[in-house]
Each structure stands twice: as C-alpha cells, then as structure tokens.
Design a protein around this nucleic acid. Structure first.
Lengths: 341, 341
DNA sequence: CACATTCAATGCAACGTTGCAATTAGGTAA
DNA sequence: TTACCTAATTGCAACGTTGCATTGAATGTG
C-alpha cells in the first residue's frame, strides 16, 4: 500500500514541474502565473492556465504549507454539550457546505473537558489550522481569551463579555426570550417559568435578562429554573413530575434546551399533564426530532446548518485580515407556532 | 496576523535543527535517532530524546508529509443519514478518543449526496489522508469498491457483499433481530412487524433475514414495513396512526431506526395506543433521547462512541499493513429491557 | 604494518512550493 | 557605441523532513 519510494516524485502526480514541462516555461513562471503575477504577459498566463486545467493541477498542500505556513485547514473544536440534538452533524454540514470548492479542509477535535483549553493551545502552538471555530461560548471563555491574546483568527458561536472585539455569530437569545414570553402572554399565561439548559454560556445571561424584562412588560409573574446542567435526564424528568403536581405551578414554560424539554415532557406525560391544556410551552428547536414527536408544540428555531455556513464565512474573512468588529452577526429566531392561536 | 516572512524559519519554532544545535549532533543524526535508529549508541539516543523532550519537539506535519507522503490524517466521510440521533457527535467523539495522543488528526467531510463518490475520489486522487472511515455502508457500496480497487486503507461501519475482504466494524444486526423477536415472543406477541429505516444498508438484509428466521422458529406471524426511507416524519407518523387503527395490527414491533421510532410513537400517542399495553416494541437505540422520553420502553443499544474507537483501531492497523481479513469485527447488541418482564 | 571490517555519525539531495534577486531581450536616449 | 531603462522570464534558496551513500574512527585480522 502506497509503496513509492519516499523523497521521490509519485509518477502520475501533476505538479508545477509537470506544467512547466508541458508549456516549456520555467517552474517559477508557472508558479507566478498561477498566483496571478501581473508582470507576465497575457499570452503566457493563458497558456499556463490552460495547461493547469487540462492536467487537473491542484497545489500540493504539504508544499504550500511548508513554504508559506498556510495550512488551508479550519478547525472545529467540538464541545461536549448535548443541549441541541444533532448539533454536531448540522454544524459540520454547514461548514462543509461553506468550504465546498475552496482549498479549505475541516478538522474536528472533540474537547472532552468543557473548561479545558488544551485543544486550543495545541492548535496555537503547532499552527495546525488557519482558523478555529468554537461553540457554546461562555461570557469569559478562556478559549477566546487565549486566541485573542495570540491574535489568532477564530470565530465563536456565541458572544462573550470581553472588551476586545472578536468575530462571532450568535443566536439572538434576547429576541428568543422576548418572543417566547409574548407568545405565552398571548396564550393567556399569568406565570411564566424559564428553564435554562446551560448556565455557563453567554446566552444564559442574555436570555434571563430579556425574559425578566419582557415578563415585566407583559405583567407576568416569573419563575426561574436555572442550572439544570448537572442534572441527569431522570432527575429532570422528576422535576417535570414535581411541576405537574405543584399547586402554584407556572402556566407558561420556556425552555432553551431540546434535551431538557424532552426530559420535562417525559415527566409531564407520566403525570398526565397535557401541554396546551394545563400549561403552555415554547422551546428552542434546532432539530426535527421534537416536532416529529409533538407536532402541536410551539417552538422557536435556530438553524444550525446556516450558523455553520455563516461562521465559516466570518472566519475566512478574518483569516484574510478583516477587522473583528465587522465580523459579528446574529441570527434571528424563527418562531414555529404550531399550537394554533 | 501570522506575518513572519514565508520561506523563513519561524523564530520560536523547535525543529530538528534546534535539537541538533542543542546537542551538538548533526541534523541527520537527530532525525535518525528520533525514529529509533539502532545503529546509534545508547548515549547519543538518550541525549537526543532528552533534548527533544525538554524543547517540546513535535515533528512538523508539512515537512513529514512532503517528504514521506504520510499525512497523519484520518478522514471521516459523513453520511447524511439521520436514523441514529446524534450519530455524528458520538462517532467523532469515539474517533477523537482513539487518536488522542497519536500524531493523527481527523478531518470530516459531509457527503451530501448519498450515492456520490466524489469525496472518496477526491481523497484518493490527492492523497489527503492516510485512511478513510465510511458509515452506513451498502451491500455493493461504490465507495468500498473504489477504495478496494485503489488499494487504499479504509474501514467501513457496516459490512458489504463484496468478495474481496476489507476491514469493517459492524453492529451485529442479526443478533439484534433475533434478540428483539425473542423478547417480543417472551412478551406473548403473536404477530411481529419489522420497521426498517434504511433499506440501502447491508444491515437491512441481515436484519430482515434474521427476523424471518427467528420469527419462524418462535412460531410468530410476520409483517414487514420496509423502505420507509423516502417518507417524511409526518408521513411516518401517519403510518403510526394507521397501525393503531388497523384491525389486524401486529402486537409486536421492531424498529431499527430511532427517528422512525419517534415518528411512529408520535402516531401511537395521537391515537391513544399505549405501548406495553396494546402492543410491544423493541427499538434500536444509539442515543439517550428516547430513553429519557420513554424510560419504560425496551431497546437494544449500539454504542456509537465505542464503534468510533474500534473503527479507528482497525483503520490504524490497516494503515500499518495488517491484512484486511483480520480486521473485521462485530459489536454485540446490548439489550436494555426496561418494560419489566 | 597494511588492510579489511565494524561502528557511529554525517552530507546530500529530494519532496512541492514561493519570493526575491538576477537575467535576458529589446528598445530608447546620450 | 555605450549606458540605461522597461518588460518578461528565470535561477536560487529556503521551509522541515527522511534515507541513501558516504565518511571517519576504532577495532580486528593476517
């Protein structure tokens, strides 16, 4: 398997040398031409371009990387979070779409320990990528800090609270909370409860703030179930049961995590509590699983595939030197009202 | 950002040269020593090893790749299939675990079109990886054909029907079907139905065959719902409703796809049909989602993270030249009987 | 003592690419 | 004629690595 002698050219390989021989030009000229050297005359440039195309030339990644340091690699550092079902697949699909036809490849590294910065450090030290994409960003995320300090191109899915601006694409969590509260208010709810999946992300703060503000504006009583993070699905399910039996339970529920929503719903079902009759619910939706199961439940959607595309776009611009403050975008929540009105 | 002059050494970089200077040996000697040259005397080897460790030397990927052709990259070609919830995340986590501490990196390419071989062709042509992992393998999978023909190292999650052996790791689908049928028989079922998620995978055939064989052995009537593949979740849900209302509906159900299971269960719930009372169900489980929602349903589990680890192990052995026929393993189904007995 | 043998370490070229410095050809000005 | 310009192309060295061929020293043999 692959037994050609190392250090010797692979016979069939098309390199700059091949094109040089084919066109009768020098290797340097070919290289220059392919990179759009303006000092070359048009005729030459055309000839080279034609030959390159005919031979199917693709620059050798190792050669380019060795010479220029450019890896043509984007690195996705995958967080272990499981709040969004199928998050990884969709994110990768989005990034894949965005780099299709470009010289970029995608490497994926799962970071097992949430608070660890090992993977980032490794990439920074060994320059194993031209840019990094991180997800589930926290307010003072050490990964962001580290890359900002190193002035290394990256983009985060999620905002931070750092003073220095950096590229990000984020779900507009405030809008989500506001929309959800208003929907519940519209359904006639008097007491709304917010169930938070992960209180370590920046979105946590944004959602909580907007939730309270919007509830106040609509004259609603509020309750907050935060830090469900450490709980097992079974425990959360238990909370669902408790809620169902509680005397002063809320009549409106907002949940920003699909897996938490599922656990709660499991508890409700077990207790005979019916969403849409006994209370109302709005959850944040990123996969098709929940709507398949419960086609009548209201949700607000974030499109993770689109997020992947956008993150890649921002990162590539960043790599090309665009200023960070121009590379910050939000995605608007997409309400999916399915419970009639 | 990264502005050091191309073609010039990065100042802080630790290369063989750095070690050579530190030890007073020649660059060649250092290189040889690090690769375990036995002609060197022990003292020298120790000195080099110590210096390399002290300086934190890591071989430059581009240099190695250019010289040897070895990329130290494993490529995961991600299928768009959505039968297993969270499949991608778990698979990547498994591979990530297995390559931790090795020189290997993981690149991921989503292959959007299921029957396309573009990604594989691209990897083969440009030698962008040392080995490939594919999933959701079909009986005469063209990707397998292509890589076998090219004698390129790969491993498939799933078997094929090709004559030439190739490395694979697969879920023991026959055992799954047999276990499931027997469980249903034990529950007193008379008529069992098999619902297949994807009829293009090899597992389809294996499951169907074992299903019929086992049903016959247990004296059960059978029904088969195949090719649910083109159906939308809503349509499948509709089938769930139909089933619930059908006069001669089966009293035992086996489903090999999590998403299909969810859709069917949705239909059942809508129709007031209760699993465990009106009929029994065994589904194939790969994520925690369904057990969270329905903690009393029987399932048989495949551990995708473990599959990722095993696939990586096989692939690495293959890359090192182990014969294909020794690199074929099955994972045994893990029954999760939750409905009492 | 000359010569062969072994041991240990090294020089060199090459993998494919790029960017600077250098070269060539043709023209124009002094 | 000489010097000087511009336009177009090219040579060369380097990025970090490896493996072959070679060197040099130490030891063994006749």
């Amino acid at each position: 398997m692959q037994k050609n002698r190392p250090g010797q050219a692979v016979p069939g390989r098309v390199t700059l040398k091949t094109i040089a021989e084919a066109t009768g030009l020098s290797l340097s000229t070919v290289s220059l031409s392919l990179r759009g050297g303006t000092t070359l005359k048009q005729e030459t440039r055309d000839k080279v371009a034609a030959a390159a195309k005919a031979l199917g030339y693709v620059p050798d990644r190792a050669g380019v990387r060795l010479r220029t340091g450019k890896t043509n690699v984007l690195a996705l550092v995958l967080d272990g979070a499981e709040d969004s079902i199928d998050f990884a697949r969709q994110m990768i699909q989005g990034i894949g779409q965005a780099i299709k036809g470009t010289p970029y490849h995608l490497t994926v590294t799962p970071e097992f320990d949430r608070r660890s910065t090992d993977t980032i450090r490794y990439i920074l030290e060994h320059r194993n990528a031209d840019g990094v994409i991180i997800t589930h960003t926290g307010p003072r995320d050490p990964r962001v800090q580290m890359m900002v300090d190193a002035n290394f191109p990256f983009v985060s899915h999620g905002r931070t609270e750092f003073f220095t601006p950096h590229p990000y694409h984020d779900f507009h969590a405030e809008a989500f909370a506001t929309m959800a509260v208003e929907r519940l208010a519209g359904k006639g709810c008097r007491k709304v409860m917010l169930v938070i999946g992960d209180d370590r992300t920046t979105n946590y703060h944004n959602i909580v703030t907007a939730f309270h503000k919007s509830a106040a504006r609509n004259g609603l009583e509020t309750a907050l179930l935060e830090s469900t993070r450490g709980l097992t699905p079974a425990e959360l399910r238990g909370i669902g049961v408790e809620l169902a039996h509680s005397a002063d339970r809320p009549d409106g529920l907002i949940c920003d995590s699909e897996t938490r929503t599922i656990a709660l719903l499991g508890g409700f079902m077990e207790s005979g509590l019916v969403v849409g009759r006994d209370l109302h619910l709005v959850y944040k939706q990123t996969s098709g699983i929940l709507p398949t199961m419960f086609p009548r439940l209201d949700s607000i959607r974030e499109d993770i595939v689109a997020a992947g595309v956008e993150l890649t776009r921002l990162l590539r611009l960043r790599i090309e030197g665009a200023p960070a403050e121009e590379l910050q975008t939000l995605s608007e929540p997409q309400p999916q009202w399915r419970s009639g009105d």
